[in-house]
Simulated assay, not measured.
Amino acid sequence: MKVRDLLRHLKEADPDAVLLYLAPYVDASEVDEIVQVAVSNELWTCERHRSEDGRFDKIYYPAVAGHIAWVG
């Protein structure tokens, strides 16, 4: 999701509402409150890997730091 998409979704939201994060493929009971937002100017890389069940997993990491280990 791009920032413009998020802002469009939040345009009509109550400014006092709690913002929650629901990770992909989790149950709604596993939501977490967003308590911090970081804005970075560094470039990031996104790799997409297809899992055995056909889903795509995305791995993000800073482009200048090189690949980081990821266990899925």
Rank of each mutant, 00 (worst) to 15 (best):
E47I: 03
G54F: 14
A23E: 15
H9R: 13
L10K: 06
A13M: 08
K58M: 05
L7C: 06
I68Q: 13
K11C: 01
L20G: 02
L19N: 02
E30M: 12
E47M: 08
V39T: 10
L6Q: 04
P62D: 01
Y25T: 04
D14E: 04
Y60A: 05
D14H: 07
E30Y: 00
W44G: 03
Q36C: 08
V37A: 15
P62Y: 00
P24Y: 07
Y61A: 06
W44H: 12
H9A: 15
E52L: 09
I34V: 15
V37N: 04
H9K: 14
V3S: 05
V3T: 08
A23Q: 11
I34F: 00
C46K: 12
R4Q: 13
L19P: 07
Y25H: 13
S51P: 02
Y61Q: 06
D14V: 05
D27C: 07
L22Q: 15
V3R: 12
I34T: 04
I68V: 12
A23F: 03
Q36S: 13
S51T: 15
L7D: 04
L6E: 03
G72T: 01
E12T: 10
V37D: 02
V35E: 09
Y25P: 00
W70F: 15
A69C: 04
E42L: 07
L20C: 08
D14K: 11
P15G: 09
G66E: 05
T45D: 11
E33I: 10
A28S: 07
V71F: 07
Y21T: 06
A63P: 00
L19A: 13
R50V: 14
I68C: 11
F56D: 10
S51L: 14
N41H: 06
E42D: 11
N41P: 09
A63R: 12
L6V: 06
